[in-house]
Amino acid sequence: MVEQANEFPFQANEVIPNHIAIIMDGNGRWAQRKFLPRVAGHKEGMNTVKKITKHASRLGVKVLTLYAFSTENWKRPTDEVSFLMQLPVDFFDTFVPDLIKENVKVNVMGFVDQLPVHTKKAVEKAIEDTKNNTGMILNFALNYGSRSEMLEATKLIAKKVQENQLTVDEITEETYSEALMTHTLGKYQDPDLLIRTSGEERISNFLLWQIAYSEFYFTQILWPDFDESVLEMAIGVYQSRHRRFGGL
């Protein structure tokens, strides 16, 4: 359900979601509507990431997870994939100084070892450069797919059982969560609010375990047009909801 812009106004003094996850969708359509190549949409989307990161941090969000590249995105045209693999290099090269000023820490989850060397190096350098920051965690899902993540977690747990480090009865929700890529986020690993832009209303293999009790917000706005006011709009809708977690 896509809710009206002014239906639930943002309240700065109300609860702010600790963890916001965003499926950044619509870069290609934004470019096509402006008769530009698709890569122009991805470039503009990178500027949106910068704006939203700063604003989320200043609002008091603890973790901002952005779905940057999925394990399925390798199926896209080679030129577009190459551009997308260069984006983290350009992004971190220009934005890390701002992240340090904002006290934002970079985290990346996904199958990073499968990335091109230049992309992997840029990611590792950004993590290293911001490792001492104590504010919001900017968590990129890069070469990430939730089903693959859960398969790897299952294999990890099975190996521990096989090696007598864990019994079957000791496998709990907590055990499983600790085996997932989000375990480094600690108590904030499950998103409070999931946002998807561009009007699509599907999850696209993103954080399937972690969003069991997340609130969803879908907007028609394309990612390059997503700004601070739209983020506050989504949070306003979140603030209007009563999260019951299966209770009353």
Rank of each mutant, 00 (worst) to 15 (best):
K187R: 12
Y188V: 00
I22K: 08
N107Q: 13
V106T: 01
S229T: 15
R76I: 02
N132D: 13
S57A: 15
A56T: 15
P17N: 02
W74H: 09
V117A: 12
G45W: 04
E72I: 11
W30E: 02
H183D: 13
I211H: 11
L84A: 05
N164E: 14
Y238W: 09
L138K: 02
D98K: 10
T78S: 15
I22Y: 07
R196Y: 00
V39P: 03
R76M: 11
F95Y: 05
H19E: 08
H55K: 14
M233C: 14
D129Y: 10
S229F: 11
Y217P: 03
T154Y: 01
V49H: 00
G236N: 01
E232T: 03
E215Q: 12
F83L: 06
L64Y: 07
F245E: 06
E149T: 01
V106I: 13
F226L: 05
G186H: 05
V2D: 03
P17D: 01
Q162Y: 09
Q189V: 03
G45M: 05
K160R: 10
Y213S: 09
Q189P: 02
K121S: 15
V2F: 04
D79N: 13
E152V: 11
V104R: 00
K187M: 11
V230R: 15
E215Y: 10
T94C: 07
N27F: 07
D79R: 08
H242A: 10
T78L: 11
Y67V: 02
S214Y: 10
T175H: 09
R76D: 08
V104Y: 01
L222V: 04
T154E: 00
I211V: 14
L231A: 03
L166E: 10
E149N: 08
G186L: 08
A126V: 04
F245M: 10
N103R: 01
P37L: 04
V123F: 04
A122C: 08
Y144G: 00
G26F: 07
K54N: 03
V49K: 04
T182I: 00
T134N: 15
A31L: 12
K34R: 15
W209T: 04
A56G: 15
I203C: 03
D169T: 11
K121C: 12
I127Y: 07
V108S: 13
F10P: 02
P191A: 02
H183G: 02
T94H: 06
S146C: 10
L166K: 12
L207M: 13
V237H: 10
E3S: 07
A122W: 00
D192E: 11
D227I: 10
S148H: 12
N107A: 07
V117Y: 15
T182M: 10
N13I: 12
L151E: 06
D90L: 07
Q86Y: 07
